[in-house]
Write a protein that binds this DNA or RNA. Sequence first.
DNA 1: ATGAAAGCGCTAACAT
DNA 2: ATGTTAGCGCTTTCAT
Lengths: 360, 360
Amino acid sequence: MPLPVSLKNIASRAGITKAAVSMALRDHPSISVARRAEVQKLAREMGYRPNLLARGLVGKSTRSIGIAWTLGRPISGGIVQDLTIRLWNRGYVTFMANSLSDPIITRQILSDFTQRGVDGVIIEAAGLLNDPVLVGQLKGFKAAVALASEIDDVPVNLVKQVTSYGIRQMLDYWLATGRRRIGFIGEASHDKIEPIRQKLLEFGLPADHVHIVDVTNQPPTVNYFDHYWSALDRTFPRPKEPFPCDAVLCAADGGASALLKWLAHRGLRVPHDVAVAGIGDVDMARGTTPPLASLDRHGDTLSETIEALLFQRLERPDEPVLIKTVPTTFVWRESAGPCPTCLASARKGLPCPLHAKKVV
Amino acid sequence: MPLPVSLKNIASRAGITKAAVSMALRDHPSISVARRAEVQKLAREMGYRPNLLARGLVGKSTRSIGIAWTLGRPISGGIVQDLTIRLWNRGYVTFMANSLSDPIITRQILSDFTQRGVDGVIIEAAGLLNDPVLVGQLKGFKAAVALASEIDDVPVNLVKQVTSYGIRQMLDYWLATGRRRIGFIGEASHDKIEPIRQKLLEFGLPADHVHIVDVTNQPPTVNYFDHYWSALDRTFPRPKEPFPCDAVLCAADGGASALLKWLAHRGLRVPHDVAVAGIGDVDMARGTTPPLASLDRHGDTLSETIEALLFQRLERPDEPVLIKTVPTTFVWRESAGPCPTCLASARKGLPCPLHAKKVV
DNA sequence: ATGAAAGCGCTAACAT
DNA sequence: ATGTTAGCGCTTTCAT
């Protein structure tokens, strides 16, 4: 293996100082154009690769970004991958660490990132932004972007996933199609439960009409199917008792697919007896029976926005912090009930443009 | 934000050299025990955090590992997440880069990793190990581990995923249950097609009896469902023509779930007319109708093995390179055909211990 | 325009 | 035993 060639090596070969070489390579005007070309050619021939550790030590940028994320969840996983590509295309390399949604671990991660001189951090901050220490750490970076769903008044660039948006769409549809006993399975976070309550109130229904199965998804959870299935068996141990809901939102598509099976197993028909929807809109949501309605988180928009806010801050550090919102949207499929387009068309006495034969 | 405190700051406060401080903090015997305690206390009070860039520049370790992976595929994604955690627990931080399975990009990534002085690299090397330049780069790291499925004679630690193992299990089962017209959908790589051919020959069937729909999964593919569905429509445009296979293996579970739907759409029953299996064994494989048989890649074993090989090399660099293999295993579910345990029991004239009522 | 000197924060090799 | 000097590879500043 060829040992690394440094500026000093080039300098001695060229008969000048390493400082001059450094400047020549970066086209500094202090070096004559002829010299520059000469040095650059030499560097290329010798296979010079700058030591990024040394450059980062003295320079103002390490061209690296730290990402602290709760890895392992199918939904947000794609965002991280996408971000990695986007950053690489901008000439930045990514430090990745699994925050496990834990404030202590996240503090350590951010501390490590600081010690490594990253230019910026991206943090998935579900609930973490309540920790003042953590927020203080974030402010220490040249640029920081948080992905959150609730907090507003935080002194860092924020991309806010408005989960409630899609949930409201979904509830409008469910309530309009006669569903009244709404259920929720998953981590019962504020941003998911509250919009349900609100919609119920809006329709003149009691807000405590939400049946919640609070399945805390410990971060390393991969198998949502079994996780939800056992939670359902635990919560509804008696097969003879009637199921209390006529529409259930699940916080994960994998869990929703479990619910579909579980309901069938109990002799309940979807969507006739119980409507079901998930969150995440993974590809296999199309592959369940019936196809699973879901909430699209718009991961592509999310990562695009995160990238934009990060570099906005990196390039113009003095401008005030920004908050951008990205909605979720309701993706209808059969598991949720009758096709909304069919319904709308039927109301006008027309056949459905999508399902001409299936007018309801 | 508190500006970073360096060894120099501590040194001037303590009235000694920064070198002495450095040694005191690391309990070097050259420093009197009393002084060590004194300096360590001072450092703690001042909130000293070593600059890892500087330490890496001079020291022999940056306590960082680079991962070059084809991100975005649901199967291998979990491995990366798991590795990130494992490395963090060992005190290492992870550089993550998306190789997109492209040799040129991967070369750049490895080059960048070198310039940043990583202690080791982990590379998902499907097909990449044929590139001699790339292998040369790998040898330049103190430790390198490659995850591959085919290559054997490569001078780096290798974790070999033996896909063929599970495929052979599956074909034994399919051929034993009377399936003869085997199909494959996905990227028709050697390690997947060859074991199918071999098994056919073993059973005295022509090896060209494999019907291949070569769906190249460009790396950023996320939506396997639609991808496979359109490939199926393209390959079999005429609904009236009989489907040529009685058993089909799909390279991705998401794609397999599309096949299930597509077959139903064509009026074919699964598993009666056509048996179906996927690869990856994602949680939602349990949620299709019928439940989807699959190949378990044993991601946990995979990442555990990668970790072991990496640190084995890091700690004992002089020992010869190792190759460890991890099999895939066939996970039976209804989509593949009748329950193997039922079959085995029936052969002995006993009821199936798993499905007592469903003896076939 | 050109080049030499200083220093980033740290640790290993040297003195005393 | 106790601590200082030298130097990692790079860039910025200062003098010519």
